[in-house]
């Protein structure tokens, strides 16, 4: 077990180097620099531009810049945003709860609907329900997130006026961040009754938009894993024992079908953060995704480099945890060293 964890952790190092290389060089390939973007359309006097470039160190050879950046990162310093002058880590920590809140709701939404749908589709294979679930999930999987988000806004917010269009909570409420998770803060630490409802209402559409792709993947994966398991010899044994159909499906089959599904859920965490960047932009959700997009537009090199690196670490950690959980549900892995 310890060896397994150490092997996995040692794999983080090359991934880590890869992320720094990619973010560092890719953003510098984009024309323009932070100073030009700050100056905006008025332009900037070339002499002053040169002076500022020197001040920020952008005039040095690119490899030297990379070396300095890596040296700082290794000391735990992700440096400051060129635009706001606030430390990147502080900004990330302030915004990350909003992203987690959205991501957790999205994955829960995907699980609560995707798992039962996949199971039922497998049990009633080739039925109308099965074809329906598979068709809808294929459509959901293929749907561009930004388009799906706009359609939902047009339908539920604009046409029926059921849900708010953007943001995390109504402007009427101000919630002092305690945990940073608005649902929790508004429910337990706010006097305002309506605050929680408002926070919840703001979550609905982003959750659906961000959860659609994972939902489709989970439903399809659950179905195919279930179908495979239902054909196994031990399911015949369970039937031969006289167990009820429900017990066979919900216990004997599902326990085994969950093994590949859990892996897929782990992989979806990465997809979720990618999706969060789009979803947060559509719904003006003040999270890490929107922050990164703005960093790209402003050529805010430190924010982009630091933010992507931190997200990368989160994704790797979650995947490690998922792999550990994998051992919990799969005894064949638990006992092999």
């Amino acid at each position: 077990m310890l060896r397994f964890i150490l092997t996995r952790v040692s794999l983080i190092i090359p991934t880590f180097i890869g992320i720094t290389l990619l973010t560092f060089f890719l953003i510098r390939l984009v024309p323009g620099d932070p100073i030009e973007t700050m100056a905006g359309e008025r332009g900037i006097d070339p002499a002053r531009h040169e002076l500022l470039r020197k001040e920020y160190g952008f005039d040095r050879p690119i490899l030297v810049q990379y070396g300095i950046y890596i040296a700082r990162v290794l000391q735990g310093d992700l440096s400051k945003s060129v635009i706001t002058q606030a430390p990147v880590l502080d900004e990330f920590l302030a915004l990350f709860p909003a992203t987690i809140e959205l991501a957790v709701c999205a994955i829960l939404f995907a699980l609560v609907i995707g798992l039962p749908a996949g199971i039922l589709a497998a049990v009633r294979r080739n039925s109308i329900f099965d074809h329906g679930v598979m068709g809808i999930s294929l459509a959901g999987y293929s749907m561009p997130i930004f388009w799906w988000g706009l359609i939902l806004i047009l339908l539920f917010s604009v046409q029926f006026d059921l849900t708010p269009v953007s943001g995390r909570i109504d402007v009427l409420y101000y919630i002092e961040p305690v945990t940073g998770f608005l649902l929790i803060d508004s429910l337990f630490f706010s006097e305002d009754e309506g605050a929680f409802r408002s926070a919840l209402a703001h979550l609905i559409l982003p959750t659906i938009v961000l959860g659609t792709v994972p939902l489709a993947v989970i439903a399809r994966m659950t179905r195919s894993a279930m179908l495979e398991v239902l054909g196994e010899d031990y399911i015949r044994t369970a039937k031969a024992k006289g167990l009820s159909r429900f017990r066979i499906i919900a216990l004997h089959a599902l326990r085994n079908a969950l093994i590949p599904v859990v892996t897929v859920i782990g992989l979806q965490v990465g997809v979720l953060f990618t999706g969060a960047i789009l979803t947060e932009t559509i719904f003006s959700w003040p999270g890490v995704g929107k922050w990164l997009i703005e960093a790209i537009f402003r050529r805010d090199y430190p924010v982009l480099q630091g933010g992507v690196l931190l997200l990368g670490i989160v994704v790797m950690t979650v995947n490690l945890l998922v792999d550990l959980a994998y051992g919990l549900i799969n005894p064949r892995i638990r006992h092999t060293r």
Partner: peptide, 20 residues
């Protein structure tokens, strides 16, 4: 089934549930 009539199968290893 499983009480008055019981059955055992050809492949014992795959006939038992690996997760229990």
């Amino acid at each position: 089934t499983g009480k008055d009539v019981a059955m055992i199968f050809q492949e014992p290893t795959t006939s038992l549930n690996p997760s229990f």
